[in-house]
């Protein structure tokens, strides 16, 4: 039998055998898994966007406990804000000790008391993020408490909305980002918001981001992508 016959036999397997082969020989490599997860996440985010009218209503009701959400804000406005959020590029700068813009790799660890300015996500002004606390709440749950404040921030129709996936935690290896995980939830005062919270001009809120991981956070980066804060976890 020639090489090409052997190869042809392999390439015309029935479904059952193909599935078994994939499971036995790791049809999806680690690199594949990373790419696939990212693609799935992107699609699900887009779906969230397309269903946003429904989502916005949900968020408005839940967030009423914040006390700073206008009940009259319309779902249409949220859709516009969110569209703007996706289109914007977030630049994250540590205000102290250095106000200059920093490249992703140069941004110092995000630890307690560190303050960040996230501009370019808004038309003008800044979003200020203060890191209050970062700790294991219980086994498998790492929580980062941050305060987000709009400092004269002017965005479309004056309101900014954040999805949970805007706060990604990145674990890094020596060769770069090893794994990125979104928080399972955003919460405030014990109330969980699986999707989003909103922030009006001049308003602030303290939120807890919960990440599911058993790893001991060993390093933190903070950075930006087109729509995400990257929170890199570190030892105290």
């Amino acid at each position: 039998m020639k090489n090409k016959d052997i190869i042809k036999l392999l390439q015309t397997l029935d479904e059952e055998t193909a599935v078994q082969l994939c499971e036995d020989y790791h049809g999806i490599s680690e690199n594949d898994h990373r790419r696939l997860r990212k693609k799935v996440r992107n699609i699900l985010s887009e779906q969230d966007l397309s269903e946003y009218e429904y989502l916005a209503e949900k968020v408005t009701v839940k967030n009423s406990k914040f006390g700073w959400i206008s009940k009259t804000a319309t779902a249409a406005a949220y859709v516009m804000f969110f569209g703007g959020l996706l289109a914007g590029v977030l630049n994250m700068n540590v205000i102290e000790p250095d106000e200059t813009q920093q490249e992703l790799s140069d941004i110092p660890p995000l630890v307690t008391e560190t303050r960040y300015s996230a501009n370019n996500m808004v038309s003008s002004g800044n979003l200020i993020i203060d890191v209050k606390k970062a700790e294991f709440a219980e086994k498998g749950e790492y929580q980062v408490t941050i305060e987000v404040k709009s400092e004269n921030a002017v965005s479309l129709n004056g309101t900014r909305l954040f999805l949970a996936d805007n706060f990604m935690a990145a674990f890094t290896s020596e060769n770069g980002i090893e794994r990125v995980i979104p928080p399972c939830a955003i919460s405030e005062a014990g109330e969980h918001y699986n999707y989003a919270f909103t922030l009006g001009d001049g308003e602030s809120c303290e939120i807890i981001l919960t990440y599911h991981t058993d790893e001991t956070p060993h390093a933190i980066i903070s950075g930006y992508s087109e729509k995400s804060f990257f929170i890199k976890l570190t030892e105290d």
């Binding site: 479904e15 193909a18 599935v19 994939c22 499971e23 049809g27 999806i28 898994h33 696939l36």
Partner: peptide
């Protein structure tokens, strides 16, 4: 199910 789905699609 990722391996299962991938195997079917890849084939």
């Amino acid at each position: 199910y990722s391996q299962y789905i991938y195997a079917i699609i890849f084939r």
